[in-house]
Design a binder for these strands. Structure first.
Lengths: 206, 206
DNA sequence: TTACGATCCGGACCGAGGTCCGTTTAAAAG
DNA sequence: CTTTTAAACGGACCTCGGTCCGGATCGTAA
């Protein structure tokens, strides 16, 4: 069994090798949080409730995860790393091997459905506006988009364009369009393809 | 003196004719909030502080504005209506008269700078993720973009495209790019023009 | 094994948003 | 001018995120 991915896919969070008890509590807390979500939904994930469910002091939760957002992000971390591994080292069209435009299309669709599956958690994990774009999970995704874009449009402002593309995949937007406007996911998916084509100038002949 | 705009530009908020005392208190509260911002920044705008500064009970603030976001939005309301009047009935290229693509370009630039001016307040007024896209102030802007887009691209999914374009103008994104990444506004402005051109296929000959 | 310092733990404490309900008051009806 | 009622008022109260610090624990080095 060799490592499935050779590329650096480490977690964004801090892990300077926790003390034994700290690591144990961390695991207990994540498990407790997951259980609370399963039982009472994301709204039931109160810092005190998590602490109680994990039989741990409240302060412990905050020291480990910083704040509520941090805890929720940690719950999403595993899935985030899986996705990252997929588009960094997995099979095409997501992974390397396919032409950049196709990778971009596949990437968006993958993120779209991943976010849709975890919508409630993704929404709750959304940090306050000032930090929304600073979070490393998002940064990683955006950087990947930017790299792909640069291969397609070497002369464009790919930093800005990548922000625009990522904005389309914002969980809050997905929530609004699917749950408040009633759009089916297929339409969002088509919208992504269309957007990629327009931005990259890969317009299908009309 | 005739009404400057004939189009419906009424506030999005509730105003089923308040009772005299209610209207008076509403004004006192807005004034107090503005003063608090001037003195202690947006962070100083605490619901209790506003209530106290306006010599009013805390419950009054909540009944009038619903929540903190509502109060902050109300502070932005006047500027929002001005902008709306400008692009609905003002002079070109923002208002009617110019070709749709130019109106779109002008619109984005106008919103960009308006948001940049009021960044702190805009950020603080940002509602929780589930309501971010539902708010009527945003809806009004997006609808306008959509109308313009439809004139340019009658066969495209303008609802989705307009969301994408609006996302570029998100105050949180502007904050990130200018204050955290250090980009000058000129670059964001150029980015908007570029984005509009790509999306509408109005690519300048390269 | 013991001693020690860094790290972690726990839960009291605080501030702020939001709710509730008994009381007051504007303003329309008689 | 009185009555009446829907609306507005006020502030006590609750919840929850986040902070703090004295005390317990782990890991290490002697």
């Amino acid at each position: 069994m060799s490592e499935p991915q050779l590329l650096e896919v480490r977690s964004f969070a801090d892990e300077p090798c926790l003390r034994a008890d700290a690591a144990r509590n961390r695991a207990k807390l994540l498990e407790a949080a997951a259980r609370l979500i399963a039982e009472h939904g994301v709204a039931g994930v109160t810092m005190e409730a998590v602490a109680a469910a994990a039989q741990v002091g409240k302060g412990t939760v905050f020291r480990r995860f910083g704040d509520r957002t941090g805890l929720l992000m940690a719950l999403l971390d595993h899935s985030a790393q899986t996705l990252q591994a997929d588009f960094l080292g997995g099979p095409p069209p997501l992974g390397p091997g396919a032409p950049p435009v196709e990778r971009l299309r596949a990437f968006g669709v993958a993120v779209l459905y991943r976010h849709a599956e975890q919508l409630d958690l993704q929404l709750a994990a959304q940090p306050e506006p000032t930090r929304r774009f600073a979070h490393s999970a998002l940064q990683a995704l955006r950087t990947h988009v930017m790299v792909l874009l640069r291969q397609i449009l070497p002369d464009a402002d790919c930093e800005l364009l990548s922000q625009t593309l990522m904005a389309y995949l914002d969980p809050a937007l997905i929530h609004h369009l699917t749950r408040q406007c009633g759009m089916p996911m297929e339409r969002l998916e088509a919208g992504w393809i269309d957007l990629v084509d327009r931005v990259t100038g890969t317009q299908l002949p009309r």
